[in-house]
């Protein structure tokens, strides 16, 4: 449904988006996650055709956004970071304007607009001037505006910002219910939003995609160093040597005394090994009471913090560049072969 290849955006010398590629299938809800200034809004502005990319392609439902802008834009409903509202119009006038602007085709305009108003609960303010609405209501009008004409693709830039908790829950479930017939990309800073709404997370930092997977896979991949915390009532050195002798344990780190005579250890299993039973057997053998034993799985927050480390983005960007250079030099070699050995000699003599 949405196909993005090698998207790059430069603002002057500032690289805001750096060779982003991903695709989103029909009916998917993708969460776009990243710290401030990561390039989320920029990417969304390019996907919707508001900005043009310095390099790269965006294809929406088979239509390239620059080659067939009208066709591509017809499938998109966009809620920008700042809802594009005309302050001097009433909500109803505004929605009518957007309906006409998008050249929406529905059986009955009034009915369609009323349905949309009902979805985001703005029916009772529809005759109010937009400039007099509160921030949350403006946001809702912004969402309504994106829904007009039933576009197949919804691009929502921080859709729940400024809403009250009840409304946040309602909008989330609205988005979830839309996913049956729509493809959605939404950006957010709120991790729980991604968890509750999205099928898939794309984490972006410094203009680079640092992760693109389901939340579950992400946490599994990242917790390769799946650690356990063990709290045991035993002499520290004895426990340490005994634990590290366990076959499936890769390493043990003492974590200090937590209570009188009670020590904590961080256990790191060898790859893909389950150490839980071994640990239990050992403690039973030695008669050391186990006071706590828990798995330190990474939650999305940990993943986020880990992946948005600038070093990660830099190394990915570097790897991308290297790949590009390699393929470029391969091309060169090819062309050299094509032009014969003469040039090669020339280059050598240089």
């Amino acid at each position: 449904m949405i196909e993005i290849q090698g998207l790059t955006k430069r603002y002057g010398s500032k690289l805001a988006v750096d060779r982003i590629s991903f695709s989103v299938g029909k009916g998917e809800i993708v969460g776009f996650l990243g710290p401030n200034g990561a390039g989320k809004s920029t990417t969304m502005n390019i996907i919707t055709g508001y900005l043009s990319a310095t390099e790269g392609r965006v294809v929406i439902d088979g239509h390239e956004i620059l080659e067939e802008p009208t066709e591509a834009k017809k499938c998109i409903g966009y809620l920008p970071e700042q809802p594009p509202l005309y302050q001097d119009m009433t909500v109803w006038e505004y929605l009518n304007f957007i309906y006409e602007l998008k050249k929406a085709k529905t059986a009955s305009r009034t009915k369609h607009l009323e349905t949309v108003c009902g979805m985001v609960k703005i029916g009772h303010v529809k005759d109010r001037l937009i400039s007099n609405l509160s921030k949350g209501y403006k946001q809702r009008v912004g969402i309504a505006q994106a829904l007009i004409g039933n576009p197949e693709v919804l691009i929502l830039d921080e859709p729940t910002v400024g809403l009250d908790p009840n409304q946040i829950i309602e909008i989330r479930s609205l988005i979830k219910s839309l996913s049956r017939s729509h493809t959605v990309i939404l950006s957010t800073h709120i991790l729980s939003e991604v968890q509750s709404v999205c099928d898939r997370v794309i984490i972006i930092n410094q203009g680079v995609i640092v992760a693109d997977d389901t939340e579950r896979n992400l946490s599994e991949k990242l917790s390769k160093d799946k650690r356990y915390t063990l709290r045991v009532k035993a002499p520290q050195t004895d426990a340490l040597t005994a634990l590290s002798r366990l076959e499936r344990v890769d390493s043990v780190r003492p974590h200090g005394q937590k209570e009188e005579g009670v020590y904590e250890f961080l256990l790191q299993p060898k790859e893909n090994q389950d150490i839980r039973e071994d640990v239990f057997e050992l403690l039973r053998e030695r008669d050391w009471p186990m006071l706590e034993f828990k798995h330190n799985a990474m939650n999305l927050e940990d993943i986020f913090i880990r992946l948005t480390d600038p070093a990660v983005a830099q190394s990915i960007s570097k790897a991308n560049r290297k790949e590009e250079e390699q393929s470029a030099s391969k091309e060169k070699r090819k062309s050299r072969r094509f032009f014969g050995p003469k040039e090669e000699k020339e280059e050598e003599s240089k």
Binding site: G49, Y78, P80, Q82, P84, I98, L101, K102, K103
Partner: peptide
């Protein structure tokens, strides 16, 4: 200034 051009430029209008 009000960024309402985002609505115009992302609509199917030339």
């Amino acid at each position: 200034r009000m960024k309402t051009d985002q609505a115009l430029l992302t609509a199917p209008v030339s």
